[in-house]
Design a protein around this nucleic acid. Structure first.
Lengths: 199, 199
DNA sequence: ACCTGAACACCGTTCAAGT
DNA sequence: ACCTGAACACCGTTCAAGT
């Protein structure tokens, strides 16, 4: 439901309630129970629509590595478009819903690139969980801005993951190499995992 | 607070409330506000204690790769020990709390193994986010068992991530290579990321 | 067929009052 | 100093009643 997504994006998923949605739609809070079995089903539908978003038209070029990068980059983008909702992807078991539509594409590309099935399975699951971990961590930072200041808070660029310089000398050594740009940082991790992809 | 952790582990984090904790401690639900500023602070303290758990005595052998594996494997184990609480690690910004104590160790080991700072930064953040993504996905499955059947439900081994065989032929090709054992699957991903670690 | 609204059993948090 | 308990402003969900 588009209205529910609008409430989630403007108020934050934490403030989303049947009563808030009822007020937004100017109807009784219990009217939604005719269309969804409850709040959980509604949230599941929202999460599914986010994961499915953009999965239909993933690129199929003659560069498998670029296609795979585009696939997970787009998953990241879809999740970050709704930062307060993003962590709720973990509510759904991974074999359910729109999840697999996306990964089907990635695995096909790994095959096309000449990777054998055992490596493909390993690379695929590593890419997926890396993308989830990275994106959900980033989403929480964006979500805090939304929940503090309401819709579309201009929180500026989100700070990259940074150690406290004072406490951890080893981490501080590498701190300059933790990129400020989360997108660049994210892609660097993808490339690390895809390092051995045959060309 | 140990009592709060006990309530979370037996009832599930979803059923945890100030009132439930008050009932468990046989005191008024509002008494806790003398010790914690609110429910959020209490949950943050619980999450911190989980992330910190076991971080103090990580191994320091002459095999850096094994030490790094042990580090993230132990983080996974600590999170899975409290499956319903695990997803709440995303509540905290990553530069806060016990998070870094663990990673300090990993980065020191990457240095010791002769890795240059740029690669170390990249490998380190990839390992961390992969571990979070993998472990939080797995934790949710365990959590569903706890929340259905109460404490220590013997849900059997958690099913590995599996595509629906009927819908996705490419994924089905590799399905036999998605290991049943989540621990083995997890370690395979770590090794993929650590592939280029100098020996 | 669909919506309403009272009702039930819950929440987190505050605050005046007790000891 | 610490706990209590009433109170406030919320929840999700059910169900008899309306149209």
């Amino acid at each position: 439901m588009a209205a529910a997504m609008q409430v989630v994006d403007t108020q934050g998923a934490g403030a989303f309630s049947m009563r808030a949605l009822g007020a937004f739609l100017e109807c009784d809070p219990t009217a939604m129970y005719r269309h969804f079995t409850g709040k959980n089903a509604l949230l599941d539908a929202l999460v599914d629509s986010v994961v499915r978003d953009g999965a239909a038209n993933l690129p199929e070029t003659d560069d498998p590595r670029a296609d795979i990068r585009a696939n997970f980059r787009q998953l990241r983008r879809s999740l970050l478009a709704h930062p307060t909702l993003a962590p709720l992807v973990l509510r759904r078991p991974p074999g359910v819903g729109a999840y697999w539509e996306r990964s089907d594409h990635a695995v096909a590309q790994l095959h096309r690139a000449g990777m054998d099935p055992v490596d493909a399975a390993n690379v695929y699951q590593t890419l997926l969980f890396y993308t989830l971990g990275h994106t959900l961590s980033e989403a929480r930072q964006l979500a805090r801005a939304v929940e503090r200041e309401g819709a579309g808070a201009d929180a500026g660029p989100v700070a990259a993951v940074r150690p406290p310089q004072d406490r951890h000398p080893d981490l501080s050594d590498i701190a300059p190499h933790l990129r400020d740009d989360n997108e660049v940082q994210f892609l660097a991790g993808l490339d690390l995992i895809l390092r051995d992809l045959p060309r």
